[in-house]
Design a protein around this nucleic acid. Structure first.
Lengths: 241, 241
DNA sequence: CGGCTAGTTGACTTTAGTCAAACACCGTGG
DNA sequence: CCACGGTGTTTGACTAAAGTCAACTAGCCG
């Protein structure tokens, strides 16, 4: 059936768990993966507190993950594109720590975790890749912390756009023209800004002809110009020794 | 010699890699661990770009980890207490992604990584514990992102103090009275605040008799009162739907 | 057509940052 | 023993960046 694309011919496998596995190893992995029907925008694949039985790999579309505070406030912790793995934060308790919601019609590969863990004892390359992916997530979150703590609103948004651009490019899509599947509010939530600030800065960058904004459609007109804007701003803060 | 405390009688093993390993498994682990001489304040155990050959477990004292941006700006990503594992962020590239510096005279257990990885193929409990520790680090960083993005200066500092308190308590030390081994500047750097703001808020909490500040020595006079301060403040922001 | 959500823009406010000055603490060396 | 320099901390006065509040527009879908 149509949902059954295999890892062997998946164009995102170099970003995903199969990276650096041999063909035979990939085939073993492929056998345990479940590919379900597409998800509609708004549908959740993980919810806080639910038992973690599988990890998910984004097959197509996009997702947001968010945690929720005691008072019900959301904090978006990441946006996921094809090839990304979802669920690492739940492995410590074997129950999900965050919510993950489809931003558009999307598909995922579901990877039963106990099987994956079992396989990793006999396949060192698989174990190493899992470790690598988790380690990358830790490093990435550290970079986000610096972005939020040390950069102003415009710098955060430019970083965000450039990061999206690079990730689209790594997936064989255009890095200069893409659709935002998240709202301005979701971008702001992630970056610690309000909707208004996000909107104002996108308008400003648009006016400067650095980007072209047409609703959800974003074109990066001058990536160099955008990077220029980053280095222009105050290079050192007093918080740094 | 005096540096050779073993995992078997280490009082932090329940927080560390040995957790949930059997006695015989701990003994295998213990054999690969190197215990070097104490580190002086300011000494680094990891530096960006250096090959990662070992992970480190804090044995005594405390550390800060920080990443550095292209323009030399530091972002502190965490403070480490006994039992904490240092180095997960470097596993993806097999080279360290951050700097880790002793804040006081401290000792670490050095765990050669290839040996640890080899062991994890035959010891599922070890593999699971490593995964658990990495997963916890991911979850923790997500919580920090929410703290920085959604909480004001006072809330960040109270959270920071309560978190330190809980961690000291989990290590059998007083959760109500402790020494800050980091400077106000380092606290501010971590929380995205300036030295002045940190100082002002500590003074304010001191004046409110919620804490007592005497230089580096902090006493939490009313943990309930501090938590009260958290829930008092604006419960919902407009960034949340 | 009407109602809803998302997005934009303007006017005003607030929080934390900046700049500056002074103090405390600590180790060094005369 | 005390003077000195350095780093860390505190406090005050002022500023600026982003948040808040509000009004309005643009799509979208029933």
């Amino acid at each position: 059936m149509e949902f059954s694309i295999r890892c062997q011919n998946c164009s995102f496998s170099h970003l995903c768990i199969p990276f650096s596995l041999s063909d035979s190893e990939i085939s073993v992995l492929d056998d345990i993966i479940r590919r379900n029907k597409p998800l509609q925008p708004g549908q959740c694949i993980t919810e806080y507190g639910k038992p973690l039985t599988s990890l998910f790999a984004v097959r197509s579309g996009s997702f947001k993950s968010y945690i929720m505070s005691a008072d019900g406030e959301q904090q978006i912790t990441g946006f996921h594109l094809p090839g990304d793995i979802i669920g690492f934060d739940g492995l410590s308790t074997q129950s999900h720590q965050s919510f993950t919601q489809a931003l558009e019609t999307s598909m995922v590969c579901e990877i039963p975790y106990t099987m994956l863990d079992d396989m990793s004892s006999t396949l060192p390359a698989l174990r190493r890749q899992m470790t690598k992916l988790m380690s990358e997530e830790i490093s990435h979150e550290q970079q986000v912390l610096m972005l939020i703590n040390k950069r102003n609103a415009q710098e955060r948004i430019i970083h965000f756009l450039l990061n999206l651009s690079a990730r689209f490019k790594a997936r064989g899509m255009s890095g200069s023209s893409f659709n935002l599947t998240m709202t301005r509010g979701e971008i702001g939530n992630y970056l610690g800004l309000t909707v208004e600030t996000v909107s104002r800065i996108l308008s400003k960058l648009n006016k400067q002809n650095l980007i072209s904004v047409d609703g959800k459609l974003i074109e990066l007109l001058s990536i160099d110009g955008l990077k220029e804007e980053l280095s222009d701003s105050a290079p050192l803060s007093s918080a740094c020794r």
